[in-house]
């Protein structure tokens, strides 16, 4: 993720320097630039600011709150040197090839199981592909093999389909059992 740039912002020494990031609930996080950079959004801000970057005054993140950013930082710390992820899918059926997660990643999601949607939203905003795609996969894993009732209960979704609509969907779904 650390791409070399002409103004020397990506130099290894800089990665070791601290930057202050302020979340929307006015919490300040002091983070190593190398870690913050896992987020492409933050990386772009650092690069745009270039030499004028005042590390102490901080970078504001108006769309992320403290508790979630804390969890995101945990991921970034672990993935600061990780290679770019590759999304693969079957060209015929467009079925996605699932990522294999490390023990650390499995544990991470187990810990934050009730915050998956928030994590996905934060990762999407902060542009952290690994966290974004992995969280979405984890959410899909939770949908897989569960009945619609279970899924509704799990995500707190209101059952707004009429019986006729459900019957119609079931009727058209019959053939996928062949």
């Amino acid at each position: 993720m650390a791409t070399e740039s002409a103004n020397g912002v990506s130099s290894p020494e800089l990665n070791e320097r601290d930057v202050v990031i302020t979340t929307n609930d006015n919490r300040n996080f002091t983070v190593k630039i190398g870690v913050a950079r896992v987020s492409k959004t933050i990386n772009n801000m650092i690069q745009d600011l270039g030499e004028s970057l005042d590390l102490s005054s901080g970078i504001p993140l108006p769309n992320v709150d403290g508790p979630i950013f804390e969890k995101v930082l945990e991921w970034c710390e672990e993935h600061k040197n990780a290679p770019e992820i590759k999304v693969e899918q079957d060209p015929h059926t467009r079925e996605r090839k699932w990522f294999t997660m490390t023990e650390w990643e499995e544990e991470y999601f187990r810990k934050f199981l009730s915050h998956l949607w928030d994590l996905a939203m934060a990762a999407n905003y902060l542009e952290i592909p690994s966290l974004y795609y992995y969280t979405c996969q984890k959410l899909a894993e939770r949908i897989k093999g569960r009945t619609p009732e279970q899924i509704r209960e799990m995500f707190g979704i209101e059952d707004d389909l009429t019986e006729e609509e459900k019957a119609e969907i079931r009727r058209t779904n019959v053939w996928c059992t062949y």
Partner: peptide
Amino acid sequence: QVLKNLNSAELL
């Protein structure tokens, strides 16, 4: 993005 991880039967 979540649905992209499901196969066709699960999607239906």
